[in-house]
Computed example of a mutant assay.
Amino acid sequence: MSTMTPEMESLKVRLKATWMAGDYGHFAKYLEPGALTFLERLSVAPGTRMLDVGCGAGQIAIPAARAGVRVTGVDIALNSIEQARARAQAEGLDARFNEGDAEMLAVADGTFDLVVSLIGAMFAPRPERVAAELIRVCRPGGRIVMANWTPEGFVGQMFKTIGKHVPPSPLMPSPLLWGNEATVRERLQDGITDLRMTKYLYPFQYPFGPPEVVEFYRSYYGPTNRAFAALDAAGQAALRSDLEQLWTQHNLATDGSTRYEAEYLEVSATRL
């Protein structure tokens, strides 16, 4: 059984609080089109045993369950899990959602045909443990698929902007390294074959302008919510200004709304 230093235990408590801040279920409604595109590309057959790691409020788990996939979702944020459970219950879907940690999955070896993480497991603080767990719980011949923001893409730039105002913990490597191909090859070299990596663009569309987008993230997206909460009034104003500038510069819309595309790395591998 692995042990954690007190510092790592404290960090994981803070990370849990970060992802429970705001309202990820509401925040993710605007992310559904991109999530459905990712899920469609997976071509998951009915009856497939699928584990969704960092499932949020069920962005891909719920539609997969609708299609007859045998879904289990795991997330560190209990409030997101409760939202996913409520959605599944309301639709009468056979899907399970459990509070859990991507570094220590309470799942037997080789349980799932497909282990997937859409912008989720990349945020756990010990990536080598995440990699080992994703592989461990996948059956031999099964698939492991991740989607991770790249450092160069829009969301990568957003996190770098936030990091200038609220420096990240030195205890964990940047989550954006999961979007770096060389790093992924290092992390996923044991127990897998047919490792493939492809970059895609994730669409974001908001029916309001960049200043309102910043406020939307501040209210509903945990990392942005906690970043603002860590700053005094002057710091909050400076962060807001930088984020508004970033969104304005990258905005593809010209009608008062906000639209941008964020690059991510899709990682696919087969379990030996």
Results as ranks from 00 to 15, higher is better:
A108Q: 06
P6V: 06
A233M: 11
A124T: 03
A84K: 04
P211L: 05
L265E: 01
F159M: 15
V71I: 10
R143G: 09
S174C: 07
Y217F: 14
F159L: 15
V69D: 13
V137K: 07
A106K: 14
Y264I: 00
G222C: 08
L15V: 03
L246M: 13
P151Q: 00
L31H: 09
T258E: 09
A269L: 12
A229Y: 02
V13I: 02
W149F: 06
W149Q: 04
L201S: 12
L246K: 11
L176N: 02
V214T: 04
N251T: 10
P203S: 12
W149P: 01
Y260Q: 09
E181R: 08
D109P: 04
P6Q: 10
G73D: 03
V184I: 15
S219N: 15
L11W: 03
F204H: 15
L134T: 04
Y221Q: 06
R70E: 12
F204W: 15
S43H: 13
G34H: 09
M8V: 06
E103A: 04
I162N: 08
Q236M: 09
P125R: 00
A17E: 15
I76R: 15
G235S: 04
Q89I: 02
R49E: 08
Y217V: 00
A88P: 08
A108N: 01
V184K: 11
G179Q: 03
L265P: 03
L39T: 10
T48C: 09
R271D: 07
R41A: 14
A230C: 04
L78G: 03
N225P: 00
M1W: 10
A65W: 07
L171N: 02
T72E: 10
H165Q: 07
A65K: 08
T3I: 13
N148M: 05
R196G: 14
G191C: 00
D94A: 13
M146K: 03
L114Q: 09
S219H: 14
E133V: 02
T111A: 13
R226F: 01
T248Y: 10
R143S: 12
G256Y: 10
E186F: 00
P207G: 10
Y206R: 15
L239D: 03
L201D: 14
S2P: 12
R139S: 05
V184A: 12
A61T: 05
G54E: 01
E261V: 03
M8D: 03
R196I: 08
R70D: 13
A262V: 11
P151Y: 00
I62F: 04
P33A: 07
Y206H: 15
D232A: 07
M4P: 00
A229S: 12
P127A: 07
A108H: 01
N79S: 14
Q157H: 06
N251Y: 11
M1Y: 13
G256T: 08
L243N: 02
I81Y: 05
Q89A: 15
P168A: 01
A95K: 05
S43L: 08
